[in-house]
């Protein structure tokens, strides 16, 4: 525990970015599906403005963890405190309205819609015009449409996808689809961004681009990021702190260097030399 605190201070001091107070605190989370224990007594916190990685072998419970955070799964035990408020029973749309956005391991874009429409949909929480106003496409509906289009265009510029904004997403290559998914999540102006394997299946150049985007989002928008990733090089390079899960239990937590030298982590995940 003390080690952890010292490490955080070190990161905060050395990183140049201001890592703030705890915005998400998970305490003793346990999640079961019938008799299967997906997560057992997991506690960790996420500080404002940091990049927090979750790693672990396949089936360790990483995606379940994200699903718990954004309200898709409801843990049987444990407390979740977000922005200082303890969470009650919650549905995914409530998490979205509190400022939690995410991307998915297997791309979950709206395939029949254009890139622009996908990203605009990501921003719908900010739009309040009613059905009748939409029918007339006049007044508030039109004003909102234009105002939010501006924001969406900023995200499009930021992620360098201007040339494909009118393309149906189904026609795009995999790497770009991943980027559009990130854009859709960013369009909601999230406080906390959950990325589920944002670099899976990418080649080196695409990974480099994606790393750059993640760091830029963190840096320029001040978004707190929780990410799951299997590429150890990427995780160790871009994250401030790392949680290691194995069989639904937490086996390590700390800065990348600490985690790298933790014998339990090495045994479970990074591999031991015999």
């Amino acid at each position: 525990m003390m080690m952890n605190d010292m490490a955080q201070e070190a990161v905060a001091a050395g990183g140049g970015r201001k890592i703030g107070e705890v915005i998400l605190d998970l305490q003793n989370i346990s999640l079961r599906f019938g008799g299967v224990k997906a997560l057992t007594d997991i506690s960790f916190d996420v500080r404002k403005h940091e990049i927090r990685a979750i790693i672990g072998p396949n089936g360790a419970g990483k995606s379940s963890m994200l699903n718990v955070i954004n309200g898709v799964y409801h843990p049987q035990e444990g407390r979740i405190v977000f922005h200082g408020e303890e969470r009650k029973e919650m549905e995914p749309y409530m998490a979205a309205s509190q400022g939690i956005a995410r991307t998915f391991q297997n791309i979950a874009l709206f395939k029949g819609m254009s890139v622009l429409d996908n990203i605009m949909t990501g921003r719908h929480m900010k739009m309040n015009a009613g059905l009748l106003s939409h029918m007339l496409y006049f007044g508030r509906a039109q004003k909102e449409e234009i105002e939010h289009r501006k924001k969406v265009e900023e995200v499009i510029d930021f992620l360098e996808i201007q040339s494909i904004r009118k393309t149906p997403v189904g026609r795009l290559p995999y790497g770009l689809q991943k980027r559009v998914e990130l854009a859709r999540a960013l369009a909601a102006d999230p406080d906390l961004l959950l990325l589920d394997e944002p670099m899976a299946g990418m080649n080196v150049e695409e990974k480099q681009d994606m790393c750059r985007f993640i760091l830029d989002v963190n840096d320029q928008f001040g978004t707190t990021i929780v990410l799951i990733e299997h590429d150890m090089g990427v995780v160790m390079d871009i994250s401030d702190r790392v949680v290691v899960l194995d069989y639904g239990k937490k086996i390590g937590d700390g800065t990348p260097d600490e985690v790298k030298s933790n014998p339990e982590v090495i045994a479970a995940y990074l591999g031991t030399s015999h």
């Binding site: 898709v72 998490a95 956005a101 998915f104 819609m113 449409e145």
Partner: peptide
């Protein structure tokens, strides 16, 4: 937005739910 929400539900309801 109305239509985009409909299409989002049509194309991928899990993702639609998660974006609110």
């Amino acid at each position: 937005t109305t239509g985009r929400k409909w299409m989002a539900v049509r194309d991928m309801d899990v993702a639609a739910e998660v974006i609110g």
